[in-house]
Simulated scan of single mutants.
Amino acid sequence: MPEWPTDAVVSLHHNPKWVIKLELRMSSFHCELNSTVDLGYGNFGCTHYRRRCKIRAPCCDEIFDCRHCHNESKNSMEINPIDRHDIPRHELKRVICSLCDTEQEVQQQCFHCGVCMGKYFCSKCKFFDDDISKQQYHCNECGICRTGGEENFFHCNRCGCCYSLFMKDSHNCVERAMHHNCPVCFEFLFETTKDITVLPCGHTIHLECVKEMHNIFSKFLVIIGWCSFLC
Rank of each mutant, 00 (worst) to 15 (best):
158 R>A: 04
223 I>S: 11
161 C>T: 14
222 V>M: 12
213 M>A: 13
221 L>A: 04
188 F>T: 05
200 P>A: 09
172 N>V: 14
174 V>M: 05
162 C>W: 01
169 D>L: 03
151 E>N: 12
219 K>N: 10
211 K>T: 13
208 E>Q: 13
157 N>R: 12
167 M>S: 11
219 K>I: 02
183 P>R: 10
210 V>M: 13
148 G>Q: 06
213 M>V: 09
225 G>E: 07
209 C>M: 08
178 M>I: 08
212 E>R: 13
203 H>D: 07
152 N>M: 09
225 G>F: 06
205 I>A: 01
189 L>F: 05
190 F>Q: 07
210 V>E: 13
155 H>N: 09
185 C>V: 11
152 N>R: 11
148 G>T: 05
188 F>H: 14
157 N>W: 03
186 F>A: 12
181 N>E: 15
204 T>D: 09
210 V>S: 10
218 S>I: 06
203 H>R: 13
195 D>M: 11
147 T>S: 14
165 L>S: 03
216 I>G: 00
170 S>T: 15
212 E>M: 14
224 I>N: 03
211 K>V: 14
175 E>S: 09
185 C>Y: 09
154 F>E: 01
219 K>P: 00
180 H>Y: 07
219 K>A: 10
167 M>A: 11
152 N>Y: 04
189 L>N: 02
206 H>A: 06
218 S>E: 13
